[in-house]
C-alpha cells in the first residue's frame, strides 16, 4: 500500500488537482490581506467565470483561448462590480465585518440563482469531454490536463509575486495591507488599490475556474463548496501569509488524498474541519486578523524613504 509508485502517483495527481485550489486560496487570501474582507462573494466570481467559458466553448463551440479570455473577463468584471457597488460603499459607511460578510454571502446566492435561471441546474463542463488522455512517466500516470495546469499555476503565482514585489501597485498593496491609513499619508489612493486587488483576484479566479471546469462538472451552487476549501487553506496557512496559503492548499490536497491509506474513507471529508479547528484553536499566535493587529515593526514603505532622500 505504501509503495513508492503509489505515493508518487498520489503526490503528482494531488499536486496537479490542487492547482485550482491554490489559486482560489490565493485570490481569497489576497483580498483578505489587502482589503481586509472575507470575500465570500468570490463564489460569485467563480461561478460567472465558469459559465462564461462554458457559454463560449460548450454552448457556442468557440475555441479554447476565447473561452479562457471570457472566463478571465467575466471573473474580473464581477470583481470590479463587487468592489465599486458593494465593498466600497460599505467601507465608506464603516459597515461591520458581519454586515460585509452577509452582503458577500447573499451576492453569491443571488448570482447562483441567476445562473440557475439561465442555465438550469444540470452539471456542466467547459469542454464537451472531461477526459484527458494520459501518458505514463515511469509508474505515474500524467494526464494532458495536469501539466498545463501546473505550469499555468506556477506562472500565475510567479506573476503575482513579481507584481507584489516589483511593481508600484503591488508594493502599494502591501503598504495598504499593513496600515491603510498610514499608506494614505504617503499619497496612496486606498480605493484604487482596493480595486486593483479585486482585479488581481478576479484574474486568479478566472484562470482557476477555467482549469477546474476543464476536468470537473460544475453546477450553479458548486462554487460555494470549492470556496470553503480555499478559506480553510487561507486560515490554516496563516492570514496575511500568501506563501503559507499556497503551500497549505497543496499540502491539504495531498493529505486528503493520502488519508485514505490510513483512515476509513468515510471520514475523508471530515478531515478538513479537523485541520481548520486545530489551526484556530492551537495556532492562534501565528495567525492574527489584520484588524486587530497593532503597529508592526516593519520598515515603512520604501517609496516614501527614497523620495525623501533619507529614512
Amino acid at each position: 500500500m505504501f509503495s513508492l509508485p503509489i505515493l508518487a502517483q498520489i503526490l503528482w495527481t494531488s499536486l496537479a488537482t490542487s492547482t485550482c485550489f491554490v489559486l482560489f486560496a490565493l485570490a481569497f487570501a489576497l483580498v483578505l490581506k489587502v482589503n481586509r474582507i472575507f470575500n465570500f462573494a468570490q463564489a460569485a466570481m467563480m461561478t460567472v467565470g465558469f459559465y462564461a467559458a462554458y457559454t463560449v466553448i460548450g454552448l457556442a463551440g468557440g475555441p479554447g483561448w476565447l473561452g479562457f479570455l471570457a472566463a478571465l473577463a467575466a471573473s474580473v468584471g464581477v470583481a470590479v462590480l463587487l468592489e465599486i457597488f458593494g465593498f466600497r460603499p460599505l467601507r465608506r459607511r464603516r459597515a461591520s465585518s458581519m454586515f460585509v460578510f452577509i452582503f458577500a454571502l447573499v451576492i453569491s446566492e443571488l448570482i447562483a440563482y441567476v445562473i440557475m435561471l439561465v442555465y438550469g441546474t444540470w452539471p456542466a463542463t467547459i469542454f464537451p469531454s472531461l477526459f484527458w488522455p494520459v501518458t505514463l512517466v515511469g509508474p505515474v500516470a500524467v494526464s494532458q490536463w495536469d501539466v498545463p495546469a501546473v505550469v499555468s499555476t506556477i506562472a500565475a503565482i510567479a506573476a503575482l509575486f513579481a507584481f507584489l514585489h516589483v511593481t508600484r501597485s503591488g508594493q502599494f498593496m502591501t503598504a495598504v495591507a499593513d496600515n491603510p491609513d498610514l499608506a494614505e499619508f504617503y499619497g496612496i489612493t486606498k480605493d484604487r488599490i482596493h480595486l486593483i486587488t479585486m482585479i488581481v483576484a478576479g484574474l486568479l479566479t478566472g484562470l482557476a475556474m477555467f482549469l477546474y471546469g476543464s476536468r470537473a462538472q460544475v453546477q450553479p451552487m458548486s462554487s460555494i463548496d470549492l470556496l470553503l476549501f480555499a478559506i480553510a487553506a487561507t486560515i490554516i496557512g496563516g492570514i496575511g501569509n500568501l506563501g503559507g496559503t499556497a503551500i497549505t492548499a497543496v499540502v491539504l490536497g495531498i493529505v486528503q488524498n493520502a488519508s485514505v491509506l490510513f483512515i476509513p474513507s468515510e471520514w475523508q471529508g471530515f478531515l478538513l474541519y479537523v485541520f481548520l479547528f486545530t489551526a484556530i484553536v492551537f495556532f492562534p499566535k501565528g495567525i492574527r486578523l489584520p484588524e486587530r493587529r497593532l503597529a508592526r515593526s516593519t520598515p515603512t514603505p520604501s517609496i516614501g524613504a527614497d523620495e525623501a532622500g533619507e529614512a
Partner: peptide, 20 residues
C-alpha cells in the same frame, strides 16, 4: 469497498486503493 466524500474532486487515493 471504499467510499468518497460527496464534495471530493480528486479520487486518486481511493482509486489507487482499488487498483491495488
Amino acid at each position: 469497498h471504499e467510499s468518497y466524500d460527496p464534495k471530493a474532486t480528486d479520487w486518486t487515493g481511493t482509486l489507487l486503493k482499488v487498483r491495488i
